[in-house]
């Protein structure tokens, strides 16, 4: 007989459960389990539970990105509160405060031909 086939047959015979001994052992294990008080169960904490619930819905937060977004938001609020933006714009001469004269001049310039004001 081919040795591979011989091995297959031997493996099936060897790994076959031995009925009698296992019944007795099963009885002992079940008796021990049922005679003693069962320990308390480990419940799922909310902190451990909600990421997996989000994961089920494909809404699992990508924590590095959430952190980057939070940092960006906090930086924006700080810059806004400190008026740093307007100071930098002034320093760089990026804006002009409109004066009343400027506004009047642009609207009521005298006519170049007649010299009359509208």
């Amino acid at each position: 007989m081919d040795i591979d086939r011989e091995l297959e047959l031997a493996l099936r015979r060897v790994t076959e459960p031995t009925r009698g001994a296992e019944e007795a052992a099963a009885g002992r294990v079940l008796a021990r389990l049922e005679s003693s008080a069962l320990p308390s169960q480990k419940r799922r904490l909310f902190a451990a539970w909600w990421p997996s619930a989000l994961l089920d819905l494909n809404f699992m937060p990508a924590w590095p990105r959430v952190t980057a977004l939070a940092c960006g938001t906090a930086l924006g609020v700080l810059v806004g509160l400190s008026s740093l933006g307007s100071r930098i714009a002034t320093d760089l001469d990026l804006w002009h405060r409109a004066s009343v004269d400027d506004a009047g001049a642009s609207i009521f310039d005298p006519d170049s031909v007649t010299g009359l004001r509208p």
Binding site: T15, P17, A21, E22, A25, A26, R28, V29, R32, L33, L38, P39, S40, Q41, K42
Partner: peptide, 29 residues
Amino acid sequence: LSLARRIGGNDAVAEEIVQEAFLRVWIHA
């Protein structure tokens, strides 16, 4: 039990292992 006996190679230890396994099933259910 059958699995534990074959892998563990010892009947008494197999019983303890199976008991422990079922207790873990209960605790982590």
